[in-house]
Design a protein around this nucleic acid. Structure first.
Length: 571
RNA sequence: AGCUCGAUAGUAUAAGGGUAGUACAACAGAUUUUGGUUCUGUCUGUCUAGGUUCGAAUCCUGGUCGAGCUACCA
């Protein structure tokens, strides 16, 4: 296989893994074949960090005419479950990738077992009767060499016999383990006779009760790669110390020489990415579930309204390297805005628990007009929609100030604004209730200023959105913001030096979800779940699954950039 | 602590001995019936000390700082 004709290296610079692959291809390694794998453990939901890995693995294969396997790393039956298998497959497909084969490490249990016996026969593995505590005690520390286990020098025949009995179920959990016999003094702790098989009388989600011994990660992953003839096995930095072991097993077993390469995992500002912490958020009820739109899970981010394209673009932009990184969540937001600006239709929604009613005193009572408003100024082919207009419209409280500051271009006593797609109006009178709160604004509209046929000659600086009182459709609007108030929650938790596992919960953003009533234009009635729109001047929103035929629920995917908010923050 | 990995604008990421570039962010202006979009412009960077070299972000040595590993998890 050769790279695509349109030389990819000219579009952007290669990351270090692409460089390795290109070197391997031009060296003729494996006849230029590229086979990667994405190896999730089916014990949790995929998140943005996995998205980076998926885009890397599948993207690499696509780019170099190769393939990618989806392989579930299911060697620990007590934590894994089919429930996760299905969600993981959904997420990968949703991101836009197809795997060559759906495989499971458990497919290889027979083969892996045979590898273990082969190692025993070479005198490179032994059965150890020590307890976990005893093994740990003899392991030494990075500065102190380990001591050999009293069982280290059992004969091949005895080891083989014991191991077969382990497999046959002769021993309870923890009674014995199989260990590789390498070097108890190695500076690499993974070389101090690592455990490669342990006894677990547990039901496996695929193999059922066929096995009561299960291989450890180090004795399963590299071998699985080799069995599949994976050419480039890509994982995160914390596996670097495992690589010598990975290579050692492959060499001792004389199997296909897959190679492991490591990249730095994704960290995002204002969120956490560890499975453990995400699980805690769900189980502690701090979010509504794995698919809560504030979660960095693919399920959550999808429900939030993000698109697969925007995520792939994000993964492309963050790059791949070996240094630790903390990506500004603003880049993710940029990627989704960029796409949604191009693709979504504009609609008007007054998102406010207490909107202000605007009464056009000189507009004939009972009269209605249909305004034709363009769906998307970025897309000339997107057409127009019909929006009913009348004597009374709702506007947002934010769009009126009784005493406006300088450069406030919205409604204020005596000030004029354009109602988007309709008329210019002037605010004449402010009506308040007993509590002194503004309830209505009495305005006059300029009949000659109708949108598209404006002969009034009046120039206004501000345009605001509105919804006809007579036609407004009520909706629930969920305004989401970053889940954490701290830029780097994982790091701050570490700095707290608390032994409390839940310390990071104190960093949650109390305002990450604000539910507000909305009045939306009738156009929106009956929109399907997952549809995306821009609420003009507010942000991008998507119809949530919680919607019912009588009640639309919108999730805010992301706000629009807001130069005015920035301006007011300054002063 | 030992071993391993890493260090380029605020955040990421290029430059592989020869002009430090790109994106996001920030800032300023223009356009705008979204304070959106678009366009233009501006700002900020090679951790440190030596060495090799005509020339070092790049190669070498020491230091500093950061991260990972030290599970019968993956």
């Amino acid at each position: 296989m050769t790279p695509p004709a349109n030389e990819p290296s000219t579009e952007r610079s290669l990351n270090f893994i692409e460089q390795i692959v290109e070197e391997d291809i031009s060296a003729g390694l494996h006849d230029g074949r590229v086979l990667t794998r994405f190896p999730p453990e089916p014990n949790g939901y995929l998140h943005l960090g996995h998205a980076k890995s998926i885009c890397l693995n599948f993207g690499l294969a696509q780019r170099y005419g190769g393939l990618t396997n989806l392989r579930f790393d299911d060697t620990n039956p007590v934590t894994e479950d089919t429930e996760y298998v299905d969600s993981i497959k959904d997420d990968v497909r949703w991101l836009g990738f197809d795997w060559a084969q759906e495989l499971y490490a458990s497919d290889y249990f027979d083969q892996l077992y045979a590898f273990a016996e082969a190692l025993i026969e070479k005198g490179l593995a032994y059965v150890d009767d020590s307890t976990a505590a005893e093994i740990a005690a003899l392991k030494g520390s990075p500065t102190v060499p380990g001591q050999p286990s009293p069982f280290r020098d059992r004969s091949v025949a005895e080891n083989l016999d014991l191991f077969r009995q382990m497999k046959a179920g002769a021993y309870p959990d923890g009674a014995k383990v199989l260990r590789a016999k390498i070097d108890m003094a190695s500076p690499n702790m993974h070389f101090r006779d690592p455990i490669i098989y342990r006894i677990k009388h547990a039901h496996h989600h695929r193999t059922g009760d066929a096995w009561c011994i299960y291989p450890m990660y180090d004795f399963a992953h590299g071998q699985s790669d080799a069995i599949e003839q994976i050419t480039h096995s890509i994982c995160t930095l914390e596996f670097i110390p495992h690589r010598p072991l990975y290579d050692w097993f492959i060499e001792q077993l004389g199997i296909f020489p897959s190679k492991q390469y490591e990249f730095a995992r994704l960290n995002l500002t204002y969120t956490v990415m560890s499975k453990r912490k995400l699980k805690r958020l769900v189980e502690g009820g701090h979010v509504t579930g794995w698919d809560d739109p504030r979660m960095p899970t693919l399920a959550g981010i999808r429900r939030r309204g993000y698109t697969p394209d925007s995520l792939r673009e994000f993964c492309e932009r963050i790059g791949v390297a070996k240094r630790d990184n903390l990506i500004d969540v603003g880049l993710l937001e940029f990627c989704i805005r960029e796409e949604l600006n191009r693709t979504t239709h504009r609609v008007m929604a007054v998102v406010d628990d207490q909107p202000i009613k605007l009464v056009l005193t000189n507009y004939p009572e009972g009269q209605e007009e249909i305004m034709h408003i363009e769906n998307n100024p970025e897309d000339p082919d997107s057409g127009t929609r019909e929006v009913p207009f009348g004597r009374e419209v709702y506007v947002e409280r934010d769009d009126f100030m009784e005493v406006p500051p300088k450069k406030y271009f919205r409604l204020a006593p005596g000030q004029m604004v354009r109602l988007k797609g309709a008329y210019i109006v002037r605010c004449d009178e402010v009506i308040k209730n007993g509590a002194g709160e503004v309830t209505e604004l009495h305005c006059t509209y300029i009949p000659e200023s109708k949108s598209g046929q404006d002969t009034s000659g009046i120039n206004v600086k501000g345009t605001i959105h509105w919804v006809s009182v007579a036609h407004a459709v009520p909706a629930e609007v969920r305004l989401y913001d970053r889940l954490f108030a701290a830029e780097n929650p994982a790091m701050e938790e570490k700095e707290m030096e608390s032994d409390d596992d839940n310390a990071f919960l104190s960093l949650l953003n109390p305002n990450s979800l604000v539910v507000v009533k909305g009045m939306v234009e009738p156009n929106l009635a009956g929109r399907a779940v997952g549809e995306r729109v821009q609420f003009m001047r507010k942000g991008y929103f998507t119809v949530d699954v919680d919607s019912t035929p009588n009640q639309l629920v919108f999730n805010r995917t992301v706000t629009l950039k807001d130069a005015w908010a920035k301006e007011t923050k300054k002063s």
